Computed example of a mutant assay.
Amino acid sequence: MNIRLNNKALFETNTGLKVLEVDLTTILPEVPFELSQFTVAVDGHSPDESHEEREIWIITSGSGQLKYKGAIYNLIAGQAVTFSPNIVHTIKNTGETTLNVISIWWKEQ
């Protein structure tokens, strides 16, 4: 079975961040979470962000530094991190290749 996900560009920043939305509703109409994939260019970073949703990032390739709750964490491919709601977080690509991340988020009930 071959499933094609509906990917569409959400936005791009001048700091090297590019976000693609992954629409799972074509295969799971009532999916309880949202999903995106994003890339951060070499020496690029995401803007500071906080939101009401709980979130998980899965690093699929590359490496970077996460700033979360005032601390810095080095991340590499194969690692995952989770974020509590309303806590500022950002990531900087510290590697020599593009940083690729899957983001999954949902509102807690």
Rank of each mutant, 00 (worst) to 15 (best):
G70D: 05
P47I: 08
W105T: 04
G78M: 01
L10Q: 12
S46W: 02
M1A: 13
N74G: 08
V101P: 05
P32Y: 00
S36P: 06
E30I: 08
S46E: 07
I76V: 15
I27G: 11
A9E: 15
R4D: 14
S84P: 07
G95R: 03
Q79C: 00
L17Y: 04
K8C: 10
F38P: 03
R4L: 11
T98A: 09
F83L: 06
H51T: 04
Y73H: 15
G70A: 03
S63H: 02
Q37N: 13
G62C: 03
T15A: 06
Q37S: 14
K67Y: 08
Q109F: 10
N6F: 06
K92P: 03
K18P: 02
I91K: 06
S63E: 15
I102T: 07
K107Y: 12
K92N: 09
V31K: 06
I87Y: 08
F11T: 05
W57T: 01
L17P: 01
L28W: 09
V19T: 05
I59D: 05
F38Q: 00
W57K: 00
D43K: 15
E53L: 11
N14D: 14
V22K: 15
I91S: 03
T25I: 03
N14F: 09
W57R: 03
I87A: 09
G78H: 00
K107N: 14
I72Q: 12
D43Y: 07
E30N: 14
L35H: 07
T98N: 06
T25P: 04
T98M: 10
S103Q: 10
L66D: 00
S84H: 13
K8N: 14
G70C: 04
V31Y: 06
T25K: 15
I3D: 07
V81L: 02
I56S: 09
I91R: 06
S50W: 09
V101E: 01
N14P: 07
L17I: 01
S61L: 05
Y68N: 02
N7L: 13
D23P: 05
L5T: 11
L35V: 10
T25C: 01
Q65S: 07
S50R: 11
V22F: 06
F33T: 00
